[in-house]
Computed example of a mutant assay.
Amino acid sequence: MVRRLHFAKLNPSGNTTVIVLDPLERELYAEVAKQLMGPEGLGADQVGFVGEAKDPKALGRLNMMGGEFCGNAARAYAAYLAFIRHPSLTWHDGQAEVPIEISGYDGVLLPRISAINHETASAHVISPMPIPNQVHFVDFGSDKLGLVNFEGISHAVAWEVSPSEDAFNEIASMYSRPDDAAFGVMFFSEEDSKIVPLVLVRDTGSLVWEGSCASGAVAVACAVASRDRRSTELRLSQPAGVLHVKVTWNEDISGAAVGGQVDMIACGSVFVRLPAFCRRT
């Protein structure tokens, strides 16, 4: 069965994200995401699906392919709503808050468009981020890992560990939580302020070297703040982009936000081929 879907593809600081704009059954997310992420599809790090918001204050809802929270996808969706000039957005001095819902986050999230250029289809978007439930440190050979657990997603911050799937598999076998929708290892060079993210999304079985990872960047900043016991701001270079992260410390982590550029890449229709047993509801 062939199905036509409307989409937008955006680039939030290197973490290419496809947003499926048509309603889609939840049980099809994994197969559709797999096709759209591949080189024969649209080629992307991740896929989100627009759904109906529960809170009337939200302009829409984005469900990630594995049910996880993603800060870059939230920024991408907010930018998309700004690029299409959503009529409910209120602008002040070229800035606007974009109330949305997103999987893995309770309530309404408020990303902020701090600058937008419709001619170049680019925007700067800052989003508040969930704070971790727990940050703790463990030995990993001669190195240290910072284990940062959020609701539904966990990251291991690996200081000065060479990026590799073997290192990821070793760390994941010891420290990933089975109930998490996603688990990532952030290979972190503190001297260079650089991270290389490798992320597993369980529902789709996808292990992706991401161009950038917002929750991973926040995990790195939270690990640094917890180690130093103070607020921190980091400019983190990643393989395909840069994210600015701020973590507030007040006897513990009390707030986090991430910001960076978002570019619109493409929008239109895409055809996906689904197994014959799939039927519209």
Results as ranks from 00 to 15, higher is better:
Glu27Gln: 14
Asn11Tyr: 03
Val32Met: 07
Val20His: 10
Pro23Phe: 11
Val20Phe: 10
Lys9Thr: 09
Val18Lys: 07
Asp22Thr: 06
Val18Pro: 09
Glu25Arg: 15
Gln35Glu: 11
Glu27Asp: 15
Gln35Tyr: 02
Gly38His: 11
Asn11Ala: 12
Tyr29Met: 08
Tyr29Glu: 09
Lys9Leu: 10
Gly14Leu: 02
Pro12Asn: 07
Glu31Trp: 00
Leu21Gln: 14
Glu27Asn: 15
Asn15Gly: 08
Asn15Cys: 08
Glu27Ile: 00
Gly14Phe: 00
Gln35Gly: 04
Gly41Cys: 05
Glu31His: 06
Glu40His: 13
Gly38Tyr: 00
Leu24Gly: 05
Arg26Gln: 12
Leu24Ser: 10
Thr16Leu: 13
Pro12Arg: 05
Met37Gln: 14
Glu31Phe: 00
Leu24Asp: 09
Pro12Thr: 06
Leu10Cys: 03
Leu36Asp: 08
Ile19Met: 07
Tyr29His: 15
Ala30Cys: 12
Met37Gly: 10
Glu25Leu: 14
Leu21Phe: 03
Pro12Val: 03
Val18Arg: 10
Asn11His: 08
Leu24Pro: 05
Thr16Pro: 00
Pro23Thr: 09
Ile19Tyr: 01
Gly41Leu: 04
Val32Cys: 08
Thr17Leu: 11
Glu27Cys: 09
Arg26Ile: 01
Met37Ala: 14
Lys34Arg: 15
Gly38Gln: 04
Gly14Pro: 06
Leu36Lys: 10
Gly41Trp: 00
Ile19Gly: 02
Lys34Cys: 10
Ile19Gln: 01
Ala33Trp: 09
Lys34Ala: 15
Asn15Leu: 06
Val32Asp: 08
Met37Asp: 04
Ala33Asn: 07
Leu21Tyr: 03
Glu25Gln: 15
Gln35Trp: 04
Tyr29Val: 04
Ile19Pro: 03
Val18Ile: 14
Glu40Val: 00
Ala30Asp: 15
Thr17Met: 06
Val18Ser: 11
Asn11Pro: 06
Asp22Trp: 09
Glu31Thr: 12
Lys34Met: 08
Leu36Gln: 06
Gly38Met: 02
Val32Tyr: 04
Val32Pro: 10
Pro12Cys: 10
Leu24Asn: 05
Glu25Thr: 11
Val32Thr: 07
Thr16Cys: 01
Glu40Ala: 13
Lys34Glu: 13
Ala33Ile: 05
Leu21His: 07
